[in-house]
């Protein structure tokens, strides 16, 4: 019997035999994965390895053929409230009539309930998040007039507003200037230090060691997952990417 005080520390994410397929082509093959709380996790793999699919299945946006994902020990429909999602930048229409402030404020909608309107509290949260990503001066700019890095900052702020425990980010560094990339990394570290967990789909193998504590190597099936120092090895990379890839060290 376990007492109330030594309650087992839940995993941030617990993925159990997850298989997702497009028709009969498997996109993810029987993935088992346990992500501890407070980890900064990079998801790495070649194109078509199922990185985005993994994120979308955790969010319940895709229905798996088999297996399940648990979020802080909860089923997806419950646990999703603890997640903030940063989609790929290209997934939305940036000509939509909205300002930077509007978009970031959308992050507060989840906790507002059906009839709720964003009020003073939500506006304050929005401003704080904008401040954090250094976009407060551009709060009233139309979103189509932003550079790629700025768009990414907006999405990041929208996730910060949610004050979530887990952050799922789909290629946040894609098409982003190096200043923005650095400040996103800073922010991620700060979040981790506050106890949050972040999963980041990442492309640049060179920076994996600098940015993340944990890494998941994916190529339809899970090649390896664990602390970067254990898992991010030449052998594992070859398994994931084929023989042509090396760390170039």
């Amino acid at each position: 019997m376990t007492g109330p005080n030594d309650k087992k520390m839940e995993f941030a994410l617990e993925i159990n035999d997850l298989t997702v397929s497009y028709k009969d082509k498997p996109v993810l093959w029987d993935i088992d994965l346990e992500i501890p709380q407070g980890a900064l996790v990079g998801i790495v793999g070649p194109n078509g390895a199922g990185k985005t699919t993994l994120i979308k299945s955790i969010l319940g946006l895709l229905k798996p053929v088999a297996g399940s994902a648990k979020i802080l020990g909860l089923e997806i429909d419950q646990g999703i409230k603890k997640i903030a999602y940063v989609p790929q930048r290209g997934s939305v229409d940036w000509d939509f009539p909205a300002t930077v402030f509007d978009v970031v404020q959308m992050g507060t909608y989840g906790k507002l309930g059906w009839l709720g309107r964003p009020g003073i509290k939500e506006k304050k949260l929005t401003k704080d998040a904008l401040e954090k990503v250094g976009m407060l001066e551009l709060a009233h700019r139309q979103i189509s007039q932003l550079s790629g890095g700025q768009q990414q900052r907006v999405f990041l702020a929208r996730a910060l507003v949610q004050h979530a425990e887990i952050y799922l980010m789909d290629e946040p560094f894609q098409g982003v200037d190096s200043t923005t990339e650095q400040s996103i990394v800073e922010l991620l570290r700060e979040l981790r230090n506050q106890g949050a967990t972040a999963l980041v789909v990442h492309h640049d193998l060179q920076t994996v060691k600098d940015y993340f504590d944990w890494v998941v190597l994916l190529n339809v099936r899970k090649i390896a997952a664990g602390p970067v120092s254990d898992v991010f090895t030449e052998t594992n990379l070859k398994l994931a990417f084929g023989s042509r890839v090396s760390l170039g060290e």
């Binding site: 082509k25 093959w29 070649p46 190529n219 339809v220 099936r221 990417f241």
Partner: peptide, 10 residues
């Protein structure tokens, strides 16, 4: 074999 079908080495 099934695992191989899914995995793509680019």
């Amino acid at each position: 074999e099934s695992l191989q079908i899914g995995t793509n080495l680019s």
